[in-house]
Amino acid sequence: MKSFVRMSYPYLLWIALFIVAPMIMILLYAVTRSGSGTITFSFTLDNFGRFLSDTTFLKVLWTSLRIALLTTVFCILIGYPAALFIANLPEKRQTLMVLLLTLPMWINMLLKTYAWRGILMNFDLESEIKVFIGMVYDFLPYMILQIHTAIAKLDRNLIVASYDLGANRWKTFLKVTLPLSVPGIISGITLVFLPAVSSFVIPKLLGGGNYVLIGNLIETYFLVAGDWNFGSAISLIMALIIIASMYLTKRLDRSAVEE
């Protein structure tokens, strides 16, 4: 089996070149001072201090996290029953449903958002509600598919056993299906929460331009302001928050499984 390990070497080289090396450059920018285009090596933590000491930036961060969090919650609430119901369909219908959920992912996201903008123009809704409709729309298929995969893998015998032991439908769901589908929810969260934190096109188009989000900040500082050092620092802060939250969900996952 050891010979298989060697198979990962080309990939390790690839990530060293195309992921690690570029990220080191971002890290270097984040801890150095001014000068876009060339790296000047004067170490500083000012870029991080500037972000963390400014209430405006913290507010932007909070708004982004809040929108991403609520989007994820809505996706679970709407997506879980859908995934459960799909898993209960006959196998051919399941394949069809999975197909139908996959298809919209192939249409340009911006275009679907334009369409929502047109549709929602006809309704007098709070801009926040419009943003959530657009966000949930974009991410819901990913959540449903992840949870569905987890539920579909479940051993049917466990459920039958639970019924045999006198548990009703509700109890079986709570004690058997739900705990065992947690890994699916977790991977769904990964695919929804992470991109949702940095998304800004949907809030911009549907929120009527009332939101400044962390994705906007990064774009503004890199592109408009040309301040790559600060832009890099914001990117790193965001990456840290995301990695921390992933670590937390993994812990939750583990404790749920242990129970």
């Binding site: 900040l217 302001a225 040309g226 301040d227």
Partner: peptide, 18 residues
């Protein structure tokens, strides 16, 4: 000048995010 190129967007972002 270069410093204003980055300061204006900085201030403008703060206006919008307030």
């Amino acid at each position: 000048p270069a410093d204003w190129q980055s300061r204006q967007p900085d201030l403008w972002t703060k206006v919008m995010a307030e």
